[in-house]
């Protein structure tokens, strides 16, 4: 299960993710991101990962792509989510390299 909550103000759009970013929920996150991205405009994106409990390779890759596109700020709490955030930044860097 994954719960996606979006809060936004004039400067920041925060996407809070809670639960598992895997399988159909990764696809759902992708869908939500496609809907949300145009609204981002020049605002900063904050990805709150502190309540994420699991992310499969597809979910991690997707977060990496979002990170590469937006240079989002990643919020992590537990050791595991800190590790996930590091993976995301690595994925994002690779994604940028591929695009170059």
């Amino acid at each position: 299960m994954l719960r996606i909550s979006i809060e936004e103000n004039v400067e920041v759009l925060e996407m809070k993710l809670e639960g598992r970013i895997a399988g159909p929920w990764a696809a759902e996150l992708s869908r939500v991101w496609v809907e949300t991205a145009p609204r981002l405009a020049s605002r900063k994106l904050v990805l709150d990962l502190s309540s994420v409990t699991y992310a499969d390779s597809g979910g991690t890759e997707l977060l990496g792509q979002i990170y590469a596109q937006t240079n989002a700020e990643l919020l992590a709490g537990t050791l595991w989510t800190q590790s996930l955030a590091e993976q995301i930044t690595r994925c994002g860097a690779q994604s940028v390299k591929r695009e170059l």
């Binding site: 719960r3 809670e18 309540s51």
Partner: peptide
């Protein structure tokens, strides 16, 4: 073990 935001759903 469950994120607070998901506990109600669980």
């Amino acid at each position: 073990a469950i994120p607070a935001g998901l506990l109600e759903s669980e």
